[in-house]
Design a protein around this nucleic acid. Structure first.
Length: 322
DNA sequence: TTCGACACATACGT
DNA sequence: GACGTATGTGTCGA
């Protein structure tokens, strides 16, 4: 009924099947580490401005902290419920102060005479997306605020970030619904770097000055995310459809005019205007989850289906069960 | 059958 | 310990 794993930080992940067991909405058992991510690949290359022969190695560090249970060898989420995906990234083990003081160049493409064309990176950013594993189409995700129905909805946004370790699962739990000022302060340096309070020692040309906001995130936190309610979770009506969550680290640069024969052309994404210039997100590295099952709103996916039924209805439910 | 909307319940945070 | 909050899910009806 319950399967529990203990993590390095002493917290535990308890997996259970919502078809068989109902756990209270605010129970800490709703927090759990989900499937680990696999590398899909590295894309465009990045070099240090002051040492242009040295290629930078990136490593995304993503984790799912709510919303997926490991049930009978499969990772299962619920369409109606939230999941949490967090990610930071590493750059050759450099700390964020080193990185923020430097400048980095993105190798865009080679021109007709085999000269490399570089563009200065404004900032690094992480985004997430969901893909159908049947036809590899993108699936819409939606994000709520803690107010849920009473607040606005959006799609998960591109999150500008600087390199950082990923806070442990327990920290993500503790910081998930903080309102208290003292508690916010306690977690502040884990999640944010405040540019306006740390002006000393940064050259005007350094990376820190081209991030879009004074409050710079160290960790991309995608909380209160759900699959769009309109998705079909069955392929033929009987068979489960598989999905995957993807995490993409990219570099944002000014300008989006690239030659159409560039091998990476299709990966560029115009992300719109900022301070009067057109910005473009260029992918550096992508990771993904294993196959995921999303259970829909059918009563058969919940415990109440069995509890109050007659024997006849139970037999029916077994015939219909997926 | 499905989905938006609203409702209820219950552990958490203050 | 009371009170407001956040979130899983029960339910109604288009």
């Amino acid at each position: 009924q319950l399967k529990t794993l203990t993590h390095a930080d002493g917290t535990t992940s308890t997996y259970f099947d919502k078809r068989k067991l109902k756990i209270a909405p605010r129970s800490t058992l709703q927090f759990k580490v989900g499937p680990s991510f696999e590398l899909i690949g590295n894309y465009n290359e990045v070099f240090d401005l002051k040492n242009s022969s040295k290629k930078i190695n990136f490593q995304l560090i993503p984790r799912i902290d709510r919303g997926f249970d490991y049930i009978e060898e499969e990772w299962v989420g619920y369409k109606r419920n939230y999941f949490t995906l967090v990610s930071s990234f590493d750059m050759d083990g450099k700390d964020f102060n080193q990185v923020l003081k430097s400048s980095y160049l993105l190798k865009l493409y080679q021109d007709g005479t085999n000269n490399n064309i570089f563009r200065k990176i404004k900032y690094f950013a992480i985004k997430i997306k969901a893909m159908s594993d049947e036809d590899f189409s993108e699936i819409n995700l939606i994000q709520h605020t803690a107010k849920r129905d009473k607040g606005p909805q959006s799609s998960p946004q591109l999150c500008p970030v600087i390199p950082s370790p990923l806070p442990k699962h327990q920290i993500i739990r503790e910081a998930s619904n903080v309102r208290n000022i003292a508690k916010k302060k306690k977690y502040d340096s884990t999640f944010y770097f405040h540019r306006e309070q740390n002006l000393d020692g940064f050259d005007i040309e350094s990376l820190v000055n081209s991030y879009p906001n004074d409050c710079i995130q160290k960790v991309a936190r995608f909380e209160r995310i759900q699959f769009a309610s309109s998705i079909n979770v069955k392929n033929p009506p009987q068979k489960n459809k598989y999905f995957r969550l993807h995490v993409i680290l990219g570099a944002v640069i000014d300008g989006c005019e690239f030659p159409s024969d560039s091998q990476y052309y299709s990966n560029y994404e115009n992300i719109g205007m900022n301070n009067g210039s057109i910005e473009c997100f260029v992918p550096l590295q992508e990771m993904r989850t294993p196959q995921l099952i999303i259970r829909g709103r059918s009563p058969s996916n919940y415990t109440s289906y069995n509890k109050t039924n007659t024997v006849k209805e139970k037999l029916q439910s077994q015939n219909l069960s997926q």
